[in-house]
Write a protein that binds this DNA or RNA. Structure first.
Lengths: 248, 248
DNA sequence: CGATAGTTTGATCGGCCTCAACATGTGTGG
DNA sequence: CCACACATGTTGAGGCCGATCAAACTATCG
């Protein structure tokens, strides 16, 4: 299933930290609290892999034996309902960690929206690292708490906001994610389809399309090419997301 | 604000483990992986407190300096929207841990629905325990992963299910929670109001009321007294929750 | 016993879903 | 390179589910 496994080049933590010179990725996720020596050790155990768009990193129910760091690309995490409908529980971007869990099997699908490079760490390796670097355990807890908080926020969005407010909140969350990984332009890559967005927001793809069209007509956004949005009026979009847009 | 702080009696872990004889609570939450000696040490540092119904354990934004274990009672966790509406992000029952986070402040309100007893652990104490008992850190990660998975499930419920399916799913989740703490009767304490349930499910209280009335008329449930439900037809409720009830 | 919070039920409205048709974009093979 | 198929996106019309507004009923508590 993963035909592109290649050995991972040794990381080199530079003075500023956080960036691996060899693979070019920001060492944002798991490894953040580690020093150079530890990073070297991890790198010698981790495998870099490349996967094409629309392939699955893992599926709901697979034995949870690996942890991935997304070096490059975008992934969506989905859960399946008994009746076949799907709910997107989150999107992941460069630097994010995917698939760390203490459960025996993954509780959701992880599917790539773009071609992607990933860092793969197998469970025995991870366990060994956790034993040698106790800080890592704390780091995983941090990540989990962040994820939990974000999911609760999403619950608020899906549970209590109007359709346009949900789409606006989604756009704002894209900006935040982009800023977090240091690309503070308001031109955003948005490789997800209307259907993906709809399954994230608890809407239909038609409603998402209509909302985006409405934003476009109000001059709030532009879509110069497919899968790229430009936010022209962040304050208006923010106000819409927060439901405080009595007039526009 | 907490006028009922009382010193916590020393725990005694019995041979079967998991139950503290002195305070009568099941030591289910944080302390599960610890041995008797560790439990004694924790107990000497923890404070038991009693709070009345409708009081706040902590509020969104408070500095996250304490961790609580609910010994007895029910709590709801809520987030506030900018426009004043609230979303219930979860309910907590006896044995559940509340308020452990690596964030600087609590990301939600914790409010009691019933009179409750709580075990309180202040942050410096917790940090010390984490240093002495590294297993605890792993335990907190486990709890966080569980909570995250449950919240994702709730996202599916709120995002993709019909009103009656959501209410049915809520009832089933009550049964599960009840079973988890060893009360496998299908007569359930349900101290939350229709409004609480509505804010959890992304519905209005009227819709929740109508759904429960419908279930009652179909003979699926009874409410012998206020704040107590009896599930008479779990299969039907389950089928409704899963959306596989084409006929009933 | 009155006041207040919570619940039920009814009537109406509207936002979003559904179904449908068409437009546009993308990839593939001739 | 073009023709074609197929995925994705847009737009419209109509209907339904759940929200909203309103009123009566019940339980709880001082």
């Amino acid at each position: 299933m993963n035909p592109f496994d290649v050995p991972h080049p040794t990381h080199e933590a530079n003075a500023a930290g956080q960036v691996c010179d060899r693979c070019g990725s920001r060492v944002a996720g798991l490894c953040q609290p580690l020093d150079a020596a530890a990073l070297d050790e991890i790198s010698s155990e981790a495998n870099q892999m490349v996967l094409p768009a629309h392939s699955a990193v893992f599926r709901e129910g697979d034995p949870a034996g690996r942890v991935f760091t997304l070096i490059d690309g975008v992934a969506k995490l989905t859960r399946l309902l008994p009746d076949g409908k799907q709910q997107v529980v989150g999107f992941r971007f460069a630097g994010d960690v995917i698939g760390y869990t203490t459960l025996k099997s993954y509780p959701f699908d992880a599917e790539l929206l773009t071609d992607a490079r990933l860092c793969r760490l197998d469970r025995p390796q991870l366990d060994g690292l956790l034993r040698r670097y106790p800080k890592l355990e704390r780091r995983m807890l941090d990540l989990c708490v962040q994820e939990l908080t974000a999911t609760q926020e999403q619950l608020v969005t899906v549970g209590r906001r109007s359709a346009e407010a949900r789409v606006a909140a989604f756009l704002i969350s894209l900006v935040d994610a982009s800023r977090r990984r240091g690309e503070p332009r308001q031109v955003l890559e948005m490789p997800m389809t209307r259907a993906d967005i709809a399954d994230f927001l608890g809407l239909t793809l038609e409603t998402v399309s209509r909302s985006l069209t409405a934003f476009r007509k109000r001059g709030w956004i532009r879509e110069p090419v497919h899968h790229r949005v430009e936010l022209l009026n962040v304050p208006a979009i923010t106000a819409m997301a927060e439901g405080t847009n009595d007039s526009f």
